[in-house]
Computed example of a mutant assay.
Amino acid sequence: MAKPISTIQKIELTEEQKKAQSLENLLSEVAQNKDSLLQTLELLQELHSSGILEALNSLVKVKEDVAKIAVGQLTRPPVTNMINNAMAAGGALTEMDPEMTKKLMGSVANGLQKAQEGIESGRKVGIFDLMKAMKDPDINRALGFGLDVLKGVGEGLRK
């Protein structure tokens, strides 16, 4: 019959053996990830060449100061107003029909082009020109649209 094990001998590696094993593991990982490591090195070289790496290192060293400045800038009233306005505009845009918005933006672009042509021609507009323009279906449509927009704005302001 076999003799029972009474003691367990733990194999302790020397410091040199631990270093050699770590180095062997590292070399194995490098060999397995050669392509990604080469790309990473190339990226770091480009960042270094352009000076971006040095700037990033400097930013990391003074991260608390940069964070204080950034937070200070973001909490200024003009910035918070801008954020609030952007959120309100985004909310309003979600309620609008995208096709109508597209049509309106195209119409505004076309109108600005016509306005530029009118400025370049240098012609003067008199009262009779205005009365004659009212009979133009395109101008009449735009005026009606404008009046409807003003009506809606007025109703919205009353609430």
Rank of each mutant, 00 (worst) to 15 (best):
M1K: 14
A2C: 08
P4Q: 01
P4N: 00
I5F: 10
S6Q: 15
T7A: 14
I8T: 12
Q9G: 06
E12H: 15
E12K: 15
E12V: 15
Q17R: 08
Q21G: 04
S22R: 15
E24D: 13
L27S: 08
L27G: 12
S28R: 15
E29G: 04
D35E: 09
L37M: 02
Q39C: 05
Q39N: 11
T40M: 11
L44P: 00
L44R: 06
Q45N: 11
E46F: 09
E46M: 06
H48A: 12
I52M: 14
I52D: 14
I52P: 03
L56D: 07
L56V: 11
L59A: 05
L59H: 09
V60H: 10
K61C: 07
K63E: 10
A67P: 00
K68T: 04
I69G: 00
I69C: 05
I69A: 07
V71H: 01
R76Q: 13
P77I: 01
I83R: 03
I83Q: 02
N85M: 13
M87R: 12
A88M: 09
A88H: 05
G90M: 04
G91Y: 00
G91Q: 01
A92L: 10
L93S: 01
L93C: 00
E95L: 15
M96P: 04
D97S: 07
D97W: 05
E99M: 13
K102D: 08
M105P: 04
S107H: 05
A109E: 08
N110A: 12
G111N: 11
G111Q: 10
Q113C: 06
E117H: 01
G118P: 05
S121M: 08
S121H: 05
K124D: 07
V125Y: 04
V125H: 03
V125R: 03
G126M: 02
D129F: 02
D129S: 01
M131A: 12
K132H: 12
K132W: 11
A133S: 04
A133L: 03
M134Q: 15
K135A: 09
P137D: 03
P137E: 02
D138L: 06
I139Q: 04
I139F: 11
N140Y: 14
N140P: 07
R141W: 15
L143E: 04
L143C: 04
L143W: 05
G144P: 06
L147Y: 06
L147A: 08
V149A: 04
L150W: 05
L150C: 14
K151N: 14
K151F: 10
G154N: 14
L157C: 07
L157N: 09
R158E: 13
K159L: 12
